[in-house]
Design a protein around this nucleic acid. Sequence first.
DNA 1: TCGCCGACAAACGTCCGATGTCTCTATAGT
DNA 2: ACTATAGAGACATCGGACGTTTGTCGGCGA
Lengths: 231, 231
Amino acid sequence: MALTDDAIAKIRSMIQSGELPPGARLPPEPQLAAQMGLSRSGVREAVKVLESARVLDVRRGDGTYVTSLAPRLLLEGLGVAVELLRDDTLLEVMEVRRMLEPMATGLAALRMTDADLDELGRILQDMRAAADDAEKLIQFDAAFHHTVIATTGNETLTSLLDGLAGRTLRARVWRGLIEGNAAHQTIEEHHTIYLALRARDQLLAQASALLHVNTSEAWLRTVLGAKSSDG
Amino acid sequence: MALTDDAIAKIRSMIQSGELPPGARLPPEPQLAAQMGLSRSGVREAVKVLESARVLDVRRGDGTYVTSLAPRLLLEGLGVAVELLRDDTLLEVMEVRRMLEPMATGLAALRMTDADLDELGRILQDMRAAADDAEKLIQFDAAFHHTVIATTGNETLTSLLDGLAGRTLRARVWRGLIEGNAAHQTIEEHHTIYLALRARDQLLAQASALLHVNTSEAWLRTVLGAKSSDG
DNA sequence: TCGCCGACAAACGTCCGATGTCTCTATAGT
DNA sequence: ACTATAGAGACATCGGACGTTTGTCGGCGA
């Protein structure tokens, strides 16, 4: 294809070059169509693609604007992509988390504030209280890790790890943990990480995070293995 | 918005549920439109979004098919997203590379074959021969790191790091390196990494990769700093 | 003067039908 | 058996029309 993809490329390069800064408003669709030499239908497809990538923000009845281009927006699509990965590649994702998450957790140990630690303590408490509710466990687990990573102050890193630990992946791991009666032990792993962070011990935080990711990976393997031998 | 986004979600969930496995063919656009309760225009916008995410493959005159859903495809969008990040967040990207690339390089030291090492040696030679050509340097630099990471056998990891070290980012770093007369020294950093890999020394590979990323980060800082003080 | 309300205009959302162009396949001919 | 060609199927693009939503502005009333 050419026309629509060209339009996408043009708009993207206008943004990249600074001609269309964050917050800028694009011309109305008919005008944009004339300007790029294709019909309004083509422009709409192009705009839709960039909107789904969180590059453009279409406000009905108002106009189309460039978003803030914040990492949290642009990297949102990573999570969607990970959700569509096939089962056998989820182990690759886990291997990446195994490398990245311990480093990030170690960094968090250096940058974490007392307020951050308090919030983490609350989440840990919530987690223990929800030990029987798979849905809540998944939610608090996500909140725990997100909070830890977010304290690094690196929004890009946070978005990446959020995306890599997608909802589906997390749900599968916890399903395995619960069915294998390992939920309690895993909650305690979070406590271990919490203690290391409280002590501002980088290496200990790193090590405990690695152990934790390893546990997740092991249970994911179990879940995937059980599935493949099903039918 | 509802109709088009609903259509996107429906198609995606059909793929996720296995109803549309990799390689499957979707119904023709008019039929798909009827099936999802919207017009052909809306379907086309939905398909276009999924095509740009490398989830669908539209073959003109033939039909629309689900791609292989390989990580290399689905994570391709990451590179595009990184290209649009604002300057100040590029340092965040560098911090992520600083965490991930040394670990990956260390892992590569364990898994690298003799054939891999030979190829790496060739790239290193090319790099030295092209010390005066910025464009080629960027290309060989990308090839070097890609080759190293690819030997881990982890396609997801490879795609992620490829995306994080996008063309624009790499070009900026090398611009700084060349203008600062540091190109030669940086090429030697690659040699150091190569030697560590040849020795199958994980820790040494890790350390030399960290030093290398650190150099890149420093020069990126220089380039960005010079730019912000320009105007 | 401030605030509410209604009308107008701008802009996107959706649909429809028509035509061009490409790909694949099957058939006919050599 | 192989090749060339014609046809059918499917996407690409266009242009216009109408509905819906949003933002704005002026007028009215408290």
